[in-house]
């Protein structure tokens, strides 16, 4: 569990981050979202003390980050950034093994960990281990960057706009990969993004920052349905709010008995994709299957009811 306790950063008397408190549960993803200059990156960088807080405290599993030397602290916290920051003169394996090497792991343990991570990121170890970053595609470099951050099994992974440099298709895949890997490893992740869509897709919790303050911290559904201020409502994107809300729930939540025409959709499909499918195929209901077994149907009316905001 990560506790951020009234943490502030002043630059020339002006607060870049103003008394932010937040608790992050173990094995969850928290997406910190805000416009540029909102203090979200400063907040993230105060957790591994790349920026020293002016006041306040961060506790990781109850232990204050001030009680350990900076470099020791950073080796326990994974750190992945937008332009990956790989060491160009190191092979993929050496890049990933950087922190375990600093921590004095044995060669065999490092090698096993590198291969394990490469496989987790669907990169064949024999093929990629000995290559240099310049020989990889942007998406592969980004994956190696995240693998390096995860190498020493850190208590916490900090990510600063990790997918910012990727094109939309690679980006969607990278987001899915991160979700899958986070669930597999049970990692605790704090991720900074300016993209509300990304925050809603990835976050178990979304923290919205504005002018150095934490304006709302809650589940994606809470943020969409009950934005705490006009600023949050703007960030959630006025007209797209119902669609964003629908993207959070799978079809399985609205299944009812009955029959519908046409191709069936999988129970894990989001309501948003199902709505889109209904509109495109001109249907009022879709059949739902799970593992090939028919569960029933979901109607447009049910989806519409789910998308309604509070009155």
């Amino acid at each position: 569990m990560i506790e951020i306790d009234r943490i502030s950063k002043l630059y020339d008397g002006a607060a870049a981050v103003d008394a932010v408190s937040m608790t992050v549960e173990t094995a969850t993803i928290t997406a910190i979202v805000g416009t540029s200059g909102s203090g979200k990156t400063t907040l993230l960088r105060m957790i591994n003390r790349l920026v020293e807080p002016s006041s306040g405290e961060v506790r990781i599993n109850g232990e204050s980050t001030r009680s350990v030397p900076k470099n020791t602290l950073r080796r326990r916290i994974g750190y992945a950034i937008q332009s990956h920051g790989l060491f160009p003169h190191y092979t993929v394996a050496r890049n990933i093994g950087t922190v375990p090497t600093l921590l004095g792991w044995s060669k065999a343990a490092i090698r096993a960990r590198v291969d394990e991570l490469l496989e987790l990121f669907s990169m064949e170890p024999e093929h990629f281990r000995d290559r240099y970053p310049a020989e990889l595609s942007g998406g592969q470099q980004q994956r190696v960057g995240v693998a390096r951050a995860l190498a020493s099994r850190p208590d916490l992974l900090l990510m600063d706009e990790p997918f910012g440099a990727l094109d939309p298709i690679i980006r969607a895949r990278a987001q899915e990969d991160l979700r899958r890997i986070q669930r597999t490893l049970g990692s605790t992740i704090m991720l900074v993004t300016h993209d509300m869509e990304e925050a809603i897709q990835l976050g178990d919790r979304v923290a919205v920052m504005d002018a150095g303050r934490l304006v709302q911290h809650g589940t994606p559904a809470e943020i969409i349905q009950r934005p705490a201020s006009d600023f949050v409502a703007d960030m959630v994107g006025g007209v797209e709010r119902p669609l964003r809300l629908l993207s959070l729930f799978p079809l399985s939540e609205l299944v009812e008995q009955g029959h519908a025409e046409g191709d069936a959709l999988d129970a894990d499909t989001s309501l948003r994709d199902a709505l889109s499918n209904c509109l495109w195929t001109g249907r009022n209901a879709v059949p739902v299957v799970k593992d090939g077994v028919a569960l029933g149907r979901v109607t447009m009316d049910a989806i519409r009811a789910r998308a309604e905001g509070p009155r």
Partner: peptide, 23 residues
């Protein structure tokens, strides 16, 4: 030096000396 690489080197916990000699 590439700023992203230097930022990452600091962020993953390389000391001053390690950054100088290794990066």
């Amino acid at each position: 030096l590439p700023p992203a690489t230097m930022e990452a080197a600091r962020g993953i916990g390389l000391s001053h000396r390690q950054r100088l000699l290794r990066v």
